[in-house]
Design a protein around this nucleic acid. Structure first.
Lengths: 222, 222
DNA sequence: CAGAGTGCTGAAGAAGTGCTGAAGATGTGC
DNA sequence: GCACATCTTCAGCACTTCTTCAGCACTCTG
């Protein structure tokens, strides 16, 4: 049930207070005083949600928001110092999911965090494609209620595809994402797709489709 | 960057105003005054996002929300007439992605629409030519709701033409864009255009026209 | 109306793409 | 160090798609 929350806020009392409050609410929290190393934290820790102060030393909240949108799919809540419609609109337009106006009551912040997590279906990170459920946190895969055992590679492959279901993913892309290769060895992907399919299709129709000449898509039968 | 937005709202001024504002923001919009034919529109047009007024004649917004959730994966924003916590909670519980309280400023509605689309990773590049839709990200082509299967070359050809629909594109231009050739082999293009037409025209009139001596145009019938 | 130019289409061989079983290589836990 | 699971490579097969070619139809020009 716990979510990972990354807090970027320069004012020490607020940063600490928010951190304690969120931890008490059962979430895992990491804090930063500025935007340094923001990308690394996003990529490595993969937070479910990011709390961004708009006014920061160095890169401001809007810049970090853009970064977050491009390199992760975490939810983003902005902390705006002013009540100005301008900031608020700019935040929403740039892609924030919500915003909280300072000064705020901690209880309200917690409420908004949980509301967003619930709205995003991220109080549990479960990706669903048709009757297939991929629980990213628990590393569990179920189809039609039945648990499916996958090897590490198969799981990484499926998780990556599930994260962008409906989109065509090239073999080269899979190779770099799952294996970290940069040289092209298409057959490697094919072999593992084949194995993955055998397990998935033991419980239902095909979900992992081939798009000849382009790659693969994970898509529910229509 | 355009998204397809379906607006269901009985009050004419709001319906029209929202429609115009969204269109100006670059989206494709369809509107309905009530829930009649809602299912058909969902299935055939496959909107990315649905704006639902809560208070509608016939089936209300909550009912339509349930329908949308069951039969599509469009995002849903509710327009609630009252500021009542009850409606808002019911909406979020039933699964709305966001809600906007009437009366609202158009700029805020647009901002929320775009915020949701971005959150969903659905600011998709969908090119539309008449009843033909080319979804570049998903590699999908649909005509009149029917999915059309294309080979890699046919797809590249269509995507290129769709990207400059209404303009005449020469064969040499197509050759360099799709094949990367620099030598002239007109018949190669003709063969693939022929194959492409056969598939497209199985579901409707000609869209891909020959301009004798110049090349081809993709244009809706008028 | 003839002749040249342009475009369309069916057929067939060539090339490409993807799938799978099997075998060797690598890794992991006991 | 052994047993086992997993990963990677390889080779062959099946199938699809691409390209070339040839013949025909149509249009424009003189």
């Amino acid at each position: 049930m716990a979510a990972r929350v990354l807090v970027v806020e320069d004012a020490e009392p607020i940063r600490t207070g928010v951190g304690i409050a969120l931890t008490e609410a059962g979430h895992t929290v990491r804090t930063q005083a500025d935007g340094d190393g923001f990308e690394r934290e996003l990529a490595e820790w993969q937070p479910d949600l990011v709390l961004l102060d708009v006014m920061l030393p160095g890169r401001d909240g809007f810049e970090l928001l853009t970064v977050a949108r491009e390199t992760s799919n975490a939810g983003v809540i902005l902390l705006t110092a002013r009540d100005g419609v301008e900031d608020r609109l700019r935040g929403l337009r740039t892609g924030a999911d919500d915003y909280v106006v300072k000064p705020f009551v901690l209880a309200e912040l917690i409420a908004r965090v949980e509301a967003l997590l619930r709205r995003m279906g991220r109080l549990r990170t479960v990706l669903e494609i048709g009757d297939l459920a991929v629980d990213v946190e628990a590393g569990l895969v179920r189809r039609a209620g039945q648990e499916i055992e996958l090897t590490a590679t198969e799981y990484k492959l499926l998780a990556f595809l599930a994260g962008r279901s409906g989109k065509v993913v090239g073999k080269t892309q899979l190779l770099t994402a799952v294996w970290g290769y940069d040289d092209y060895a298409a057959n490697l992907v094919e072999v593992h797709v084949s194995a993955l399919r055998r397990k998935l299709e033991a419980h239902g129709p095909r979900l992992l489709h081939t798009v000849r000449g382009s790659g693969y898509v994970l898509r529910p039968p229509s």
